[in-house]
Design a protein around this nucleic acid. Structure first.
Length: 478
DNA sequence: ATAGGGTTAG
């Protein structure tokens, strides 16, 4: 224990870390259980029982007392432990050690390093490791693609996915699953469809549950709910994610009834379906909803104005399923009240929340105040927002719009003038061919995501109001 | 023995 105190777990500098290696305490004898195979087994068992800190401490002891027992396998376990723990500096030190031990050309370790950097949000470092890999196989490609998705670079992920194929590396089910989630993120329906076709034509591809779930998610996020549902209905084996993806899909499309029907079916409460299931495949309806499922359910209620139903599900979530509502669940409830125009209910709900309401919650409420024209509440909420997120230009705009709507021009001008930085212009992106373009456009083959229709509708209404658009007839199809 | 995977409020 004395060593733990003398040398902190995460040394602030590499030199300090190297000092640890070069100064093993001579008094400490090597324990017999630290022989090579045993040491790795210990690391592995710590990892399996989720004791990441213990694994790291143990590894540090190994470094100090018996560095010779460390082999490339040890690093795999330690890298995994440090990835899950998010130690700020430990990652680079481990990378340095991998190099120092001469293990830097082992592809397994390089892939682990990509993951480690990705988990720390250092996509550039991950890419750097990737570039150094001489023979890039499907697993390291997937690791980098996955890193791009995890770090909000879905466009880059898809570029890598294509580049990988140009390098004659065939995608497998894991790579395809990750690529599909990138498609879902940017609404790249064409690319998603291409992958779907590929999946059906490639021989020997293992179309497993995750891949099917990713396909459903891609279709519903890209606006093609029909195809999403088609896959859902055709799947014999479904897990909680399958159901949740479909429920969220219907909720996003404003199909609340369908979403809630699925939820009921999933719980096996729908007697008719229960019977049907009983005759056929028993057990397939025994799926327990998780916290994400409830996000979908609450979203559906919110979008359909079903306040009472939403309240019941929110209650049932913790009472019947023992799921603790998270920030987003409270956010859904606030949204539910706000969309229904129940300002008082929303306000009381926010004040009684066991969590600190965040800027998004107050912003939702501010939006409702605007719609209802409640200047007093809006002004109060804006004060809170100024504390939580002072740089958000949209809040100033919302507030100034309330004053404008009430004809309070002097106040409006004051609020408008408080904006320090120009608001970033809103933008949408839409896929053209298999690339992504930064403008709004649509045709039969490339329908827009549902939320873009909402933006388009507002755009068209504004254009009409400004006299740019002679007819509103084109709106009907939306 | 060893590396990569899906669902999450506005």
């Amino acid at each position: 224990m004395r060593y733990l105190k003398r040398f902190p777990l995460v040394p602030t500098r590499v030199t300090k870390f190297l000092a640890i290696i070069y100064h093993p305490n001579p008094k400490v004898q090597l324990h017999t259980h630290l022989k090579p195979p045993k040491a790795n087994q210990t690391l592995k068992s710590y990892l399996n029982s989720n004791c990441n800190t213990k694994a790291l401490l143990f590894f540090r002891d190994l470094l100090r007392k018996s560095p010779s027992t460390i082999d490339s396998f040890s690093f795999l376990f330690v890298l995994k432990a440090s990835t899950q723990k998010h130690y700020a500096i430990g990652g680079k030190q481990l990378h340095a050690l991998v190099i120092k031990f001469g293990f830097n050309s082992i592809v397994y370790l390089q892939t682990s390093l990509i993951n480690m950097y990705s988990a720390r949000g250092s996509l550039l470092d991950a890419h750097h490791v990737f570039d150094e890999i001489p023979c890039k196989n499907i697993v390291c490609w997937t690791a980098l693609i996955s890193a791009s998705v995890d770090n909000q670079k879905p466009k880059k992920a898809l570029q890598l996915f294509r580049q990988m194929q140009m390098d004659n590396v065939e995608p497998d089910n894991v790579a395809i699953t990750v690529a599909l989630s990138a498609c879902a993120d940017i609404g790249a329906l064409g690319m998603g469809e291409w992958i779907h076709t590929y999946v059906h034509h490639k021989k020997g591809l293992d179309i497993d549950l995750s891949l099917n779930n990713a396909l459903i998610n891609m279709y519903v996020k890209c606006g093609n709910i029909v195809n999403g549902r088609r896959i859902f209905d055709s799947m014999e084996k479904k897990d909680v994610t399958t159901w949740t993806s479909m429920i969220v899909g219907h909720a996003l499309h404003g199909q609340a009834e369908e979403a809630l029907k699925l939820f009921a079916e999933m719980r096996g409460k729908d007697k008719k379906i229960w019977k049907k299931k009983r005759n056929g495949d028993r057990g397939s309806s025994l799926i327990v909803p998780n916290d994400v499922t409830f996000i979908g359910v609450l979203m559906a209620c919110s979008h359909a104005g079903m306040v009472e139903e939403g309240k019941q599900h929110f209650k049932s979530m913790s009472e019947d399923y023992g799921l603790k509502p998270r920030e987003s669940h409270f956010g859904c409830m606030v949204d539910l009240f706000c969309r229904a125009g129940l300002l008082k209910e929303a306000y009381n709900f926010i004040l009684e929340m066991p969590l600190q309401p965040n800027a998004v919650v107050w912003r939702t409420f501010l939006g409702a105040c605007c719609l209802k024209g409640n200047i007093e509440l809006a002004a109060e909420v804006r004060c809170r927002l100024l504390e939580l997120d002072p740089g958000h230009a949209g809040d100033y705009v919302a507030m100034s719009n309330i004053y404008a709507a009430k004809g309070m021009w002097d106040k409006k001008i004051v609020v408008r003038g408080q904006i320090k930085q120009r608001k970033a212009p809103g933008c949408s992106s839409i896929e053209v061919g298999t690339g992504i373009s930064e403008f709004v456009a649509a045709d039969e083959d490339h329908p827009l995501r549902p939320e873009i229709y909402v933006v388009l509708k507002h755009l068209l209404i504004n254009m009409k109001a400004s006299g740019y658009l002679p007819e509103l007839s084109s709106l009907t199809e939306y």
